[in-house]
Write a protein that binds this DNA or RNA. Sequence first.
DNA 1: CCCTGATTCGC
DNA 2: GCGAATCAGG
Length: 196
Amino acid sequence: MKDSVLTMVSGAQPAGWTDERVDLLKKLWMEGLSASQIAGELGEGVTRNAVIGKVHRLKLSARAKPTNTTPRARPAAPRPAAPRRVAGPAPSMSASASINKPRPSMPRPQVMGATALAMTPDMQAELYVAPATSELFIPEDKRLSLLQLNEHTCKWPIGDPLTKDFYFCGQHSLESGPYCEFHSRKAYHQLDKKRR
DNA sequence: CCCTGATTCGC
DNA sequence: GCGAATCAGG
């Protein structure tokens, strides 16, 4: 007997691309949703890899018709306007609430671009000047000299090495790197961009 | 680090 | 055919 009970094992629905699902997949893919978004839309048992894999098998990788009717050279980038930005964006965002959201399928990141922004005097008033203190303050008693570093201390240098007030972060470092969480993130975000 | 799609390859 | 693992890029 064919004992393929792979399905219906633990109430999980391992996909099994039905016409319905494939249809939805096609639709969403064409609409420009990302693979992970589509995966989330199709169900918990579907990963973005599954989606991408299917997409390729269906041979519908290309999903945007830029209307390349003119293989001409790039028309000089149009300079619409340069809304001058003041000093800093003053990002006062951080407190990420602990909202339970396993996989928040985004609403619709579709439309973006031309967004008329008009600031009322009130809004402008609320724009504080950027703190500019993008560095952690380490209490003096926590500061470490070069010789005090060990495997578990953050080795992020702070200050001018030539001056007296030079020290190392010294916070407990992550297993994944030589820095504490704060500095690890800071380092990566810089380097990874330009790497290679 | 987050994310994206592309490709490979054992199942 | 399927999709996790990997790769390559932003």
